[in-house]
């Protein structure tokens, strides 16, 4: 092996540091994170149980009406056929599990992401801290933080939701930040010149104007959440991802493909509906 001058620099023990930090954190915080995980599991399981307990016909009708009202007849028709197909191939229950997982993850992304986006837009130092963390969250391979999550939150839906959040939240933060920064200067001046307070500015001017961007962020977040379900199934999230995972292990191509198609159908329906949330309401202005 060729030697280099740089060999004289001692190796930085990043791996050891990380291991030791995780051990330390687990020893110090393990119990509280487990308690948190138990609470959250109750919530997600509750949501899953609720969606599964509903008659499939009712849910299908609700989705069709949403698609019709927010988008178009075409998308409503696709929703009808797509959901009936999922039911037909026997993947309804696992699809509902996945849907509950996505809803839970997206709700948390919105709850945490929008305030963080506002903070990043309003405060330069906050932006300087948040921006690189977002890059980190989006590019760090999911498997790298998937496994360390297990000692903290156990196996099951909770680490699945949390890793999904890590992956899917950045666009909510980024687009909230972007939307707020794109508010025209004159409208900012308008708000200030009439004596608006910080919160009045935010609620009456900035957030309404950033709406389309924020909704685009939420739409992205939903798509990314769905793309994480297979990965999340590795740590016991079940749902459609679980079916895919089993199919891979047992080399059942057909079964894997069915579950994959079901994921795509769910993704298309959720995408079309949420994508038009912004456009439809915005369209009223023009």
């Amino acid at each position: 092996m060729n030697s280099s001058l740089m060999d004289n620099i001692p190796r930085i023990p990043l791996a050891e540091w990380t291991d030791r930090s995780i051990d330390y954190l687990q020893a110090e915080w393990g119990e509280s994170t487990q308690a948190f995980a138990n609470g959250m599991e109750e919530l997600i399981k509750g949501l899953q149980g609720f969606l599964i307990s509903l008659p499939p016909e009712l849910l299908i009708i609700v989705f069709i009406l949403l698609a019709w009202w927010l988008v178009s007849k075409k998308v409503a028709l696709f929703t009808l056929l797509g959901l009936m197909f999922i039911y037909n191939i026997g993947l309804w229950k696992v699809s509902m599990e996945t849907l509950a997982l996505v809803i839970g993850a997206v709700a948390l992304c919105i709850l945490i992401g929008i305030p963080l986006g506002i903070l990043a837009a309003k405060n330069k130092s906050a932006h300087r801290i948040i921006a690189p963390i977002l890059d980190f969250m989006q590019t760090l391979p999911a498997f790298v933080y998937l496994l360390p999550a297990i000692p903290f939150f156990g196996l099951g839906v909770v680490p699945a939701v949390l890793t999904t959040i890590v992956f899917a939240m950045p666009p909510v933060i980024r687009l909230t930040d972007l939307g707020l920064k794109q508010v025209p200067e004159e409208l900012e001046e308008l708000g200030k010149s009439f004596g608006s307070t910080f919160w009045q500015m935010l609620l009456k001017i900035e957030l309404p104007l950033a709406r389309a961007n924020i909704l685009a962020g939420i739409n992205q977040c939903i798509m990314l959440s769905l793309s994480m379900v297979v990965v999340a199934a590795m740590i016991g999230a079940k749902g459609l991802g679980g079916v895919v995972w089993t199919a891979i292990q047992q080399l059942k191509m057909g079964m894997g493909f069915e579950a994959g198609v079901a994921i795509v159908i769910l993704a298309i329906i959720l995408d079309r509906i949420t994508q038009n949330l912004g456009v439809k309401q915005g369209g009223r202005r023009r």
Partner: peptide, 17 residues
């Protein structure tokens, strides 16, 4: 600003929503 003065803008600055 709330009570004594108000402003009119070159590019109108109306809230589109």
């Amino acid at each position: 600003r709330r009570q004594k003065m108000s402003m009119v803008f070159q590019r109108f600055a109306l809230l589109p929503h």
